[in-house]
Amino acid sequence: MKIRGVSDVEAEYKEIVAACEQAKQVKHSLKNLLKPASIPPLVIGVLLQIFQQFTRINAIMFYAPVLFQTMGFKANASLLSSVITGIVNVGSTFISIYLVDKWCFSCNVVRVVMGPLGWLIPSETLPLETRTTGFAFAVSTNMLFTSIIAQLFSTMLCTMKAYIFFFFSGWIVVMGLFVFFCLPETKGVPIDSMVERVWMQHPIWKRLF
C-alpha cells in the first residue's frame, strides 16, 4: 500500500502469490534463460554490472588514497578524502533508493549516474521463474569485472595517467546510450506483465518475439 499509494492492493498481492507458486514449479531455470522472454532482462542485468564497474565506481573506492596522493594530498588528507568518498557513496545509495519510485524522470536520471540501481533493475525485470539463475549471472559478472578492474587499475593509472579518466568517461557515454535506448521504465508494471507490457512493446526488444 505504501509503494503503490493506494489502499486496494489485494488483486496485485494475489497475482504475486500466484506467480511465486508458479515459480516453485520451475525445474529448468537455466534452460528458461534462453527463452525470448528471459533474454532482455538477462542482457540488461549482466551489462549493467559491467557498466557499473567500467564507470570506475569500485576503482575509486579501492584506490582513493592513492589517487588523492597523486594529486598532492598528504597521507592523512588522502585517507580523509577516501572516507568522504565513501560517505558520498552511501548517501547516493539512499538518495537513489528514495527517488527511484517517486518520479519517472528521477528514476531515469539516477539510473544513469548512480551505481546502486544496477542491483535494483534486475529485480524489477527478471521473471520469477529465472530470477535466481539470472541474479547468479549478474552477481558473477559483477564480481568478475570488479576483480579485473581491481587488478588492472593501478597499471592503467601508471601507463595512461590522466587519460585513464577519459577511458572510463567513454564507458559512461556507452552506458548512457544503452540506458536511453534499451532500458525501459518498469515503474508500476507487475513482474508477470513485463513481457506483454514492456518487452513486446519495446522498439528494440520486441524483435525477439
Rank of each mutant, 00 (worst) to 15 (best):
I95T: 13
A59I: 03
P36C: 05
Q52Y: 02
L30G: 04
A75F: 08
F73T: 04
T93M: 10
F54I: 03
L48G: 06
K74R: 07
Q53D: 11
S82M: 06
F51Q: 02
K31I: 13
L80H: 05
H28T: 11
K27G: 01
N58V: 06
N32V: 04
G86P: 04
G72D: 09
A37Q: 11
L80I: 10
V83Y: 08
S92F: 01
I44P: 03
L79M: 10
T85Y: 04
A59F: 08
P36Y: 04
F94C: 09
S78D: 02
Q52M: 07
A77C: 02
L99D: 01
N58Y: 04
N89T: 11
S38L: 02
T55F: 00
L34D: 06
F68M: 13
I97T: 07
S82W: 03
S29I: 02
A37C: 04
A75L: 09
Q49I: 05
N76W: 00
V109H: 07
L67E: 10
L48P: 01
Q49G: 08
T85H: 02
Q52N: 14
C104A: 13
I84L: 14
N32I: 00
L42A: 10
I87L: 14
S82Y: 04
S38D: 02
P65L: 09
K102G: 09
S29A: 14
F73Y: 15
A75H: 08
I97R: 00
N76S: 12
Q69S: 14
M71I: 05
S78G: 06
P36D: 05
N32E: 15
K31Q: 15
S38N: 06
A37T: 07
I44Q: 08
L79H: 03
F62Y: 15
F68W: 09
S92H: 01
N32D: 15
A64I: 07
C107M: 11
W103Y: 14
A37E: 12
R56E: 09
G45T: 07
K31H: 13
K31P: 02
S82V: 08
I50M: 06
S81M: 13
C104V: 13
G86T: 07
I84M: 12
P41H: 00
N32L: 13
T93D: 00
F54W: 07
P65R: 03
Q52G: 12
K27T: 15
P40C: 04
F105V: 14
N108K: 15
T70I: 09
A37L: 01
K27H: 06
I50W: 03
G45D: 07
A64M: 09
V46K: 05
F51S: 03
S38G: 02
A64T: 10
C107F: 15
F73C: 11
G86Y: 06
P41I: 00
Y63L: 10
T55R: 09
Y63S: 10
M71A: 15
V43Q: 03
P65G: 10
N58S: 12
T55Y: 01
Y63F: 15
L30C: 11
S92D: 04
P36K: 06
K31F: 12
K27C: 01
I87Y: 00
S29R: 05
F73L: 13
I57R: 06
N58H: 11
R56Q: 09
V83Q: 12
P40H: 00
F68D: 10
L48W: 00
Q49H: 07
I44V: 14
Q69C: 05
Y98N: 02
F51V: 01
L79D: 13
C107K: 02
M71S: 14
L42C: 08
F105Y: 12
A77D: 15
K27I: 05
